[in-house]
Structures are given as C-alpha cells and as structure tokens.
C-alpha cells in the first residue's frame, strides 16, 4: 500500500493551482479529500507523476449564498462542513442529512463535495443528489471558466465533462421552489458503505396538490449516476398517491443501460432496488413537500 513516488504541490490559490495544472498537464492529478484517489494510488492502479493538493486553497472552502439566491458551496467543502452548516440545514436539509450518511466519520471529515462529483464514482452518494437538486457546477480555467449543468456533467464511468485544464471550484444549488421536498434513500454496501443503489428525489407540489416538478437521481445502478426521467414524467402533473408512486417507481431503472453486476449485487437485484428506493425516496420527499 505504498504509492509510486510522485511530486506534491500544495498551492494556496486557484490561480496557482491552474498554473501548476497547465505546467504538468496529463502527469498531474488534482487531490481533493483523497478518499478515492489515494487508495487506488496505494494499489498502484493510478500512478500520477504529480499531485496538486487543493486542500490549502481557502477560497474553495465555504458555504454561502450566490448572487442569484442559490446556495453556493465551495468545491473543497467537506461532508462534515455540509452536514453541520446551518445554511444547508435550513435550505436543503436532505443534503445535510445525506452528508452525514456518507462513509464514516473519517470520510466525512476529509471527503469533499467537489471531489465526489469530479471523481464520479458510480456508487457515490452525492451524484444522485446533485441530479435531483439540479446542481450547477462552476469551474475555473486559466482563461476564465464556465458553469456546467449537472445533466451534462456525468459522461461515463469515472468520467465527467471537466476538461484536463479545468478545476471545479463551486457548486450552486438553485433555491428550491416552495412546496419542494427532498429525500435520499439507499441500500449501503455493507463493506464500503457506498450505495449499492441510492435514489434522490426532489418533488415539488403545488397548492392544488399536483406535482409540478420532479427530479430523480439514481446512483449505484449503472456506470454513472442518471436521472430517472421516465419516473419523473409519470409523477409530473399528477396528484401523487400510492398507485402513482408504484407505477412511477417501477420505471426508475428503465433508462439505465448495462446495470452493474458484481460481487455486491446482481443486475437483476440492482434493478429491483432502484424501484424500491425510488418509491421510498418519492414517498419521503412527498411527505416533506408543501
């Protein structure tokens, strides 16, 4: 469990980090909390020549409000920060809750929201929440930067829309419309405590009890976290009752090609779990809506 030798840089500003990234190109990896990267380096499955540690960049670790009223979270904010933030607890309590469900205390103390999203582990918890909560991902490059919609972010197994010269700097979570409830439900892998399957649901219900918006994110089931669009379609525009939930949840795995099939769960079981946790997440989100 000793990684191959590497150079280590610990810049204190995003500008310096970008400069190092340009300098080292493909030889460099960005280090956030390190809970995904360091284990694979110790196994020598990943052998970067150089690590650029983002951990000392103060400007990447904050939780506040963006100009447009969305919740803004610095990419290097830890799960612990998110779980304990009064602002997150007030604005998106389900996110604070989920942060407290990730891994264990050590993981929560070191793991970061930005690291989780950029690493795009197919069984990570936050990717599902990111899809349900419609995260906007703010990045920086040497020239400028951009905002990436979460729906365009997860591309493939451990692959995102981030370019090699780009650093994820902050996450914006748009203010939830009135009448929105959010829930994240998962079956944890008993060994790693990653999600075997996890489903996040954000459901908005109007005064008339009709569902006006539904975003469902599924993690663990396929190569990337995905939205369960079939499920969302069935929910929208309806009074959601048990029958609707059943029908909608049944379709939660419908658009996932190549369900994961491994030591921890067969594809068949994952498909089933997706429907179970979709139903549970919708049920609880609904109970929190309005």
């Amino acid at each position: 469990m000793i990684p191959q030798a590497f150079d280590y840089y610990a810049p204190t500003s995003v500008a310096d980090a970008l400069r190092l990234l340009r300098q080292h190109g493909d030889d460099a990896k960005l280090l956030a909390g390190g809970h995904s990267l360091l284990p694979i380096m110790k196994l020598r499955l990943s052998t970067p020549q150089c690590l650029i540690d983002l951990g000392r960049i103060a400007e990447l670790r904050f939780i506040g409000e963006a100009d447009d009223g969305s919740l803004a979270i610095g990419a290097m904010s830890t799960y612990h920060d998110i779980k304990n933030s009064a602002l997150v607890q007030a604005r998106v309590p389900a996110l604070a809750e989920a942060a407290g469900e990730v891994g264990d205390v050590q993981v929560q103390n070191k793991g970061t929201i930005g690291g989780s999203l950029a690493h795009a582990d197919p069984a990570g918890d936050f990717p599902a929440l990111a899809l349900a909560l419609n995260f906007e991902l703010v990045t920086a490059t040497a020239r400028s930067g951009r905002t990436i919609a979460i729906d365009r972010f997860f591309r493939d197994l451990l692959t995102t829309a981030l370019r090699p010269n780009e650093i994820l700097t902050e996450i914006h979570i748009p203010a939830l419309p009135a009448g929105t409830g959010v829930s994240y439900q998962k079956l944890p892998n008993k060994a790693s405590h990653y999600a075997v399957v996890g489903v996040a649901a954000a459901i908005t219900v109007g005064d008339d009890g009709v569902c006006t918006e539904a975003r469902i994110g599924v993690t663990g089931a396929g190569a990337t976290a995905v939205r369960a669009r079939n499920t969302e379609r069935i929910l929208k525009g309806k009074h959601i009752d048990a029958a609707v939930i059943r029908r909608a949840a049944k379709r939660a795995a419908a658009n996932i090609e190549d369900l994961n099939d491994d030591l921890h769960a067969s594809a068949e079981y994952r498909e089933h779990l997706t429907t179970v946790f979709a139903a549970r997440a919708i049920e609880e989100a609904l109970s929190r809506a309005g």
Binding site: P39, D104, N189, K190, A191, S192, L263, H264
Partner: peptide, 13 residues
C-alpha cells in the same frame, strides 16, 4: 480473491 479488500469483504460495524 474477488473480495480482496475491506471495500469488498464486509465486516460488521
């Protein structure tokens, strides 16, 4: 050994 680490071999918490 497929269950070759504590990420794959479940022990109770």
């Amino acid at each position: 050994l497929v269950s070759g680490s504590l990420m794959d071999y479940a022990m109770p918490f």
